[in-house]
Nucleic acid binder design. Structure first.
Lengths: 399, 399
DNA sequence: CTGTTAGCGCTTTCAC
DNA sequence: GTGAAAGCGCTAACAG
C-alpha cells in the first residue's frame, strides 16, 4: 500500500474581474457595420464581440471582398499598396478567415480524421503523433477521436468526422470483421486507411505489423533457448492483433512439438499473480512466459518478482510490444518491438497518396489499394535468457 | 547494445482493385440533380460521388428543406409518416449533414481546441483523454494539436483552431510570460483556459498543479530522512512548472540550512551518467537526488544502476511526476504524483462553465476567472529510503 | 405540420 | 488590378 501524505484537494481562488470591462464594442465603421448577431443582443453586454468577417475587412479597407479574399490567399494579383492596406486592416481587426465558409464552397477541408482506441495508450499516441506530423506536412489538421474499442463509439466517431467533412480517415477498427463498419466505410466519400488492424474483405488500404511472424519468431527464440513449456499469456483475445500473435505462438510451438498453452485471463496484476502462482504450483510448471501485450508483460513481470521467481533462471519472460522501461528494469525485459512511428507515418502517407491521387485523377499506381505489413524486431534483453553485450548502452535511445 | 534480429523492412502488396468499379453514379432524381461539382468532371470517372446534400434528400423525399432540417435535428414538428419517409431517404443516400454549413449559420461548432506540447507525452495525453471525455459529455469534439513547446507553432495552432471556429480553447503555453501569446489570447473571441501552466498577467483561467508545494514537500521529506546533500536534477529550466519545482526545492533546502545544488544538464542518459558520476567522485558527493521530471528521473535511475550505486543506501532518489513502472522496478521509485486526469477534467469543465455561462448571459458566479491549483501527493516507495508496507499491492492500480 | 425564403462568410467567374 | 454577384448546404423566421 502506498502512503498518501498530502491530501488531494482543490483550491479555487476567485478573482472578481470585471466581466464588463472586457467589452470592447467596436463601431468605427460605416452605417451598416452593426448588424445581425451584434444587433440581436443590444442591451446584454457581451464578453467578446463576434469575430470580424471578410466583408468587414473589405469595408474598412475600402476594397471589395474579392480583393480581401485574394490577400488572405497569398496576395497574388493585388497591387502592393492595396495589399499592404488590407493586411493592416486584417491585423488591426484580428481577422481570421472562417474555415466553415471556405469548406462550404467545396474546397478541401484540409483535415483528416484518426480514430483510435485511446489517446492515452502509448502505442496509439505515438502513431497519432507521427500521423500528425505527416498531416502538418500536407498542411492538414489531424482530428483524433477515441473509440475505446467500442464498435458503437467507432461508428459514432465516423459520423462526427464525416459531418466535419474530413478529407480522409484513418481508423484502427475495434473488430476487423465488423460488417456494419466495413459497409459504412465503403460508402464513405473519402479515402480510408486502416491502421494496426485491417478491415477484412474490403478494398480498404491498411498498415499493420506482422504480428504473426513477430510472435512466431519470438516463440522460436524461446524454443532455441531450450525452453520446453512455454505459456502464452494475454488478457484479450478478440483483437485482430492478439489473435495473430496467438497464431504465431501456436505455429512455433506446434512445429516444435511443444505443448500449446494459452491463458487469456490476465486482466490485471491480481489475475497475473494468481495465474502464474497456480501454474508454478501445478504439475507442469512453465519454464517460459510469452506475453502478448504491454500491460500483460508488466503484470507478469511484477508477479514473477513478487513470487520471488528468478527470471530468466526459473522462468523466462518475453513480451510483445516494447515499452520505455523495459530496458531499465532488472532483469531487463526482452520484447518484440513494433515500428510504432513508422506505422503512423506510413498510414498517413498512404492516405495522402490517395488524396493526392484522386485530386489529380491519377492513373495506374495510385489507383491500387495497398496492404502494407511492417516487420517487427526482437529486442534481446535479459529476461529471455540472453545476455546483452552492454546492459545500459541502449539507454540513450528513448530520450 | 541491443541485438537486432529481424531486419526492419516493408512489404507492399498491391492489389489491383478496379478503381472504376467502385463508382456508383447515382442519378435517380429530377432534372437538376446533376449539378456543380458533379458536372465539372463529366468524363473522368470518380472514385466516389460527392456527398448528398440536404436538398437532395428533400427532393427525393418530396418534401421541403425545412422538413429535412427538422428531421435531422430531432424530428420535432414533423408528422410520423413524413419523418419515416425522410429518414428512409437519408439512410438510402447515406446523407450526413454538412457541419460547415451549420457552423456558417452561426450556431456553435461544438468543437473545442487543445494545444499541448506533445500527444506522445503520457502526462498530456492523459490530460487530453480526460478533457475529451468532458467534451463528449458536452456533445463536443476535442481537436488536439501539438506545439512541441515552440511559441511559433503555438501561435500557428491558435490560428488554425480559430479558423476552425472552435467554441473554446485549452492551452498549455510554452512560455507563461509570452506577451504576444497573451495578447493574442486576450483578443480571441472565445473563452480560453490554460492547462498545467498559467498565462501571467492575464485574466485567463488556469488549472495547474501546485508544483512549488509539491517540490518543497518532497525535498522536506528527503531532509526528514536525514539526507544532507540533496542535489536537484533537471534538463530544462525555462518551463513554468520546472521553475516552480526548483523554487520549491530551494525553499526547502534553504530553510533547512542545507546546500542548494541545481544541475540542469540532464538531457539524456549519457548526461545523467556523466553528471552523477562526476558528483559522486567529487568532494561533496550527494546523498540524495531530487529529479524534476519524468525522463530525468529515469535517466538518473538508470545511471545509478549502471554505476552500481546502492539506492537508497548510498544515494536516495525522489522524482517529480509518477510513471507507470515506478512501482515495478527494484527499488521502486518514490515520486511526487500529480492528479493528471483531474487536471484535464477540471480544465475542460472550467471551459464549458465559461461556454455555458456566456451562452445564458449568466450573472455573478460564472463571470469570474478562476485560477485552480491542484495538490500533489507524495508516493512513498523505496528509493527515498521509505519502506512501503507491501511492495506489490499498489500494482492493481494502474491496470 | 409544412414550404418559401433570406442569408451565414467565403470563393469564384466574369466584367470592368 | 479590382469588384459585383452568384451561390456552397444549412437554419430560422415567417407564412400557409
Amino acid at each position: 500500500m502506498e502512503l498518501e501524505i498530502a491530501h488531494l484537494c482543490v483550491l479555487v481562488h476567485l478573482y472578481d474581474l470585471s466581466w464588463n470591462s472586457a467589452v470592447v464594442y467596436i463601431t468605427m465603421a460605416g452605417i451598416d457595420s452593426c448588424y445581425r448577431s451584434r444587433i440581436k443582443r443590444p442591451t446584454k453586454m457581451q464578453k467578446r464581440s463576434p469575430p470580424p468577417t471578410l466583408s468587414e475587412v473589405a469595408r474598412k479597407a475600402g476594397v471589395g471582398t474579392t480583393t480581401v479574399s485574394r490577400v488572405i490567399n497569398g496576395g497574388d494579383r493585388v497591387s502592393p499598396m492595396t495589399l499592404a492596406r488590407v493586411r493592416r486592416v486584417i491585423e488591426a481587426l484580428g481577422y481570421m478567415p472562417n474555415q466553415a465558409a471556405r469548406v462550404l464552397k467545396g474546397v478541401r477541408t484540409n483535415t483528416i480524421g484518426l480514430i483510435i482506441p485511446s489517446i492515452a495508450d502509448p502505442f496509439f499516441s505515438s502513431c497519432a503523433e507521427a500521423a500528425q506530423a505527416v498531416a502538418r506536412a500536407h498542411d492538414s489538421l489531424l482530428i483524433v477521436t477515441t473509440s475505446h474499442n467500442d464498435p458503437h463509439a467507432e461508428i459514432e466517431n465516423i459520423h462526427i468526422l464525416t459531418r466535419h467533412r474530413v478529407d480522409g480517415l484513418i481508423i484502427a477498427p475495434a473488430n476487423s470483421q465488423n460488417q456494419t463498419l466495413r459497409d459504412l466505410l465503403d460508402r464513405l466519400s473519402v479515402p480510408v486507411v486502416a491502421i494496426d488492424r485491417p478491415i477484412s474483405n474490403s478494398s480498404i488500404a491498411s498498415v499493420v505489423t506482422d504480428n504473426f511472424k513477430g510472435a512466431r519468431f519470438a516463440t522460436r527464440h524461446l524454443i532455441d533457448h531450450g525452453y520446453k513449456r512455454i505459456v502464452c499469456l494475454t488478457g484479450e483475445s478478440t483483437l485482430f492483433t492478439i489473435q495473430e500473435r496467438i497464431r504465431g505462438y501456436r505455429a512455433a510451438v506446434e512445429s516444435a512439438g511443444i505443448p500449446y498453452t494459452l491463458d487469456t485471463s490476465i486482466k490485471d496484476y491480481k489475475s497475473a499473480e494468481y495465474s502464474i502462482e497456480s501454474m508454478l504450483a501445478g504439475a507442469n510448471p512453465p519454464d517460459a512466459l510469452f506475453t502478448l501485450k504491454n500491460s500483460t508483460t508488466i503484470f507478469a513481470y511484477e508477479a514473477l518478482q513478487k513470487l520471488n521467481v528468478r527470471v530468466p533462471k526459473s522462468v523466462a519472460l518475453l513480451g510483445f510490444d516494447d515499452f520505455e522501461l523495459a530496458s531499465a528494469v532488472r532483469p531487463s525485459i526482452s520484447v518484440v518491438q513494433q515500428p510504432v512511428e513508422e506505422i503512423g507515418r506510413v498510414t498517413a502517407e498512404l492516405l495522402f497518396d490517395q488524396l493526392l491521387g484522386s485530386r489529380n485523377g491519377l492513373p495506374a499506381h495510385s489507383k491500387r489499394t495497398r496492404q502494407v505489413t511492417l516487420e517487427t524486431r526482437l529486442i534481446q534483453r535479459s529476461s529471455c535468457g540472453c545476455t546483452p553485450a552492454s546492459v545500459s548502452s541502449d539507454k540513450a535511445g528513448p530520450s
